[in-house]
Computed example of a mutant assay.
Amino acid sequence: MFPKKHFSPNPVLYCIVFYILFSLLLFALTKRTIHVMMLWNLLLAFLPLFIAVCMCLADSARDWLRTWMLGLLWLVFFPNAPYLVTDFIHLQGIYFYTTGKSIVYSSDFLSWLSLIHIGIGTFVGTCSGMLSMWIIHHRFLQKFASPIVSIIMSLIFITSGCAMYIGRFLRLNSWDIFYPTTFLSRVTHHVNAFSIGFSLLSACYIFMTYYFFSVLFTAIARLGEHLR
């Protein structure tokens, strides 16, 4: 007789199901749409990782046209990952503590659940996005000299920083870039000191976040090779 094979779901699947149920429950209890929108935002944040893997496969197959098309598509969707940090603004109006003679922390459990929910989504989505950038970065290092790669990465940081401003303040989505006339018209009408400052601030945030995760991912990769 053949041994019975038992299906053992990946723990990641449990986490996904739990987060979906967690989101729906919080939305039902608080009526805050951000808890449902986090699911959509997380999906968009995971797309760059999928695209980066597909790009590497196309590059390995020496399908240059598909590689460059996927690379541009990755650049379009990557900002959705760091953009997640701006979702913390939806906690506005929720008080976690009051001040007076002493600080008194809120005992409203739902408020703390909202904070944890958005925090988990932001962390996981950011990890996914930064992993996709790490894959792209190392692919570049295999193809180009380090100074050229540094220039490319700097342009990616700046472009993504601008995209974070466009997404948060102009409420444009990644796919709106495929309507260039309308897209450029909206963007050019909002070039000012604040938009430039916010874009550069976002670029710095992406830069610092990426290099933190880069050290982490590299250490994990080396540890994995050492344990083989």
Rank of each mutant, 00 (worst) to 15 (best):
K4E: 08
L201Q: 04
S154A: 10
M133Q: 11
L29Q: 13
F2W: 15
F178Y: 13
G125R: 05
F178V: 07
A203E: 03
N80D: 03
L21G: 04
C204F: 11
Q92R: 14
T209R: 13
I118N: 02
F50A: 10
P82A: 01
I151H: 07
S132Q: 00
Y105D: 01
L13M: 07
L47M: 12
F78S: 00
Y179L: 12
M133K: 10
Y210C: 00
I206T: 06
V187S: 02
D108L: 12
F198V: 11
S185E: 15
F7H: 09
F140V: 04
L13C: 03
F123L: 14
T33S: 15
L113T: 03
L49Y: 06
C162Q: 07
L26Y: 01
Y210K: 02
D176G: 00
S8D: 11
P82W: 01
F77N: 05
I196Q: 04
G161T: 08
R139I: 07
L43I: 07
L21P: 01
F46K: 01
V12M: 10
F157A: 02
F213T: 00
T99C: 09
W74K: 02
Q142I: 09
I156L: 04
H90V: 05
Y105S: 06
K31V: 06
I206R: 06
P147H: 02
G224R: 12
K4A: 10
N173T: 08
H117T: 02
I148Q: 11
Q92G: 15
A203S: 13
T126M: 11
A163Q: 09
D87I: 00
L44P: 07
S146F: 14
A28V: 12
L25I: 11
G125A: 08
G119T: 14
Y205M: 15
T33K: 09
Q142T: 15
L72I: 13
P9D: 03
I89C: 00
R228M: 10
S195N: 06
A145G: 01
T30L: 07
L72Y: 10
Y97W: 15
L170W: 09
G119S: 15
T67D: 03
P180M: 05
L155R: 04
T30Y: 03
F109R: 12
G100K: 06
I220C: 15
L184E: 03
I16S: 01
I103W: 04
C54K: 13
F27A: 05
L172R: 06
M130S: 03
M133N: 05
I196N: 01
